[in-house]
């Protein structure tokens, strides 16, 4: 190994701090988990199966989509396609962290990716844009989000009736508002604004005309192409 390769050391104290930093948003994740637990029970999953799915899959949107396909039997290929399409954004999120992740030992690199999800990634990405390297939030923030998802699923399975209508409380907008706040808190240059406009147009085009659940990846890649041709620091695209 190249002795000059920089090494990223995960700091336990910072991992703990990031755990508590994402605790407030995790409380909302509990509410979502409860909605999933309730829906899973109604779809015919046993309590243990619902909890097992939340523990091992830990990707809410795809879990809800799977419930829509649940019956006395489930077609495997459509299930794989839908779960892959909805979660394919993880591919891009992971790739975007690669400049930092490559400095971790392989075990830690893939270990912290076990709890990679939208919210902790959004914080890490925003910090990176602002010049702060923060992989601790992937681990610490990911753990608190994962625990919240499990706790919520448990509550939903056993006390589902408590939260009949999360939409009425605006709880379906938690992730959207959180991600928007992270996006707008990052660095805004003309280049970023052009990338955003292209991403917005491409994602809407994909939303209308391409197969369902492809719009996030299409929009993000389209925004990335702007970056590929328009380097930081150069004036012209």
């Amino acid at each position: 190994m190249n002795p000059f390769t920089p090494v990223y050391h995960l700091q336990p104290g910072k991992v703990r701090a990031e755990f508590f930093r994402l605790l407030p948003i995790s409380l909302f994740v509990v509410a979502f988990g409860a909605a999933f637990g309730l829906a899973a029970s109604q779809a015919g999953l046993s309590p243990l199966q619902s909890i097992l799915m939340s523990t091992t899959v830990f990707a809410g949107a795809s879990q809800f989509a799977a419930l829509d396909m649940w019956g006395t039997q489930v077609s495997v290929l459509p299930l794989v396609a839908v779960v892959f399409a909805i979660n394919s954004r993880h591919l891009l999120m992971g790739a975007s962290l690669y400049p930092m992740l490559r400095e971790l030992p392989v075990g830690q690199r893939y270990g912290i990716l076990l709890v990679l999800t939208d919210a902790n990634w959004a914080v890490a990405a925003q910090d990176y844009q602002n010049g702060r390297r923060n992989l601790e939030v992937i681990l610490g923030g990911g753990l608190v989000l994962w625990l919240a998802w499990l706790l919520g699923s448990l509550l939903g399975v056993y006390f589902g009736g408590l939260l009949q209508d999360p939409q009425a409380l605006g709880l379906d907008m938690v992730l959207g508002c959180f991600l928007l706040a992270m996006a707008l808190g990052g660095k805004k240059s003309p280049r970023v604004l052009v990338a955003w406009s292209v991403a917005a147009l491409a994602s809407m085009a994909a939303y209308w005309w391409l197969p369902p659940n492809t719009h996030v990846v299409i929009g993000a890649l389209a925004g990335g192409v702007v970056g590929y041709f328009w380097l930081e620091g150069s004036k012209q695209p």
Binding site: R89, L180, G219, E232
Partner: peptide
């Protein structure tokens, strides 16, 4: 540098591509 620029633009675009259709 070009790949890094692609990655950075893509990263902030992920959020926009989630939010705008939402």
């Amino acid at each position: 540098p070009r790949i890094e620029s692609f990655i950075n633009a893509m990263a902030s675009s992920v959020l926009i591509a989630i939010i705008v259709p939402m």
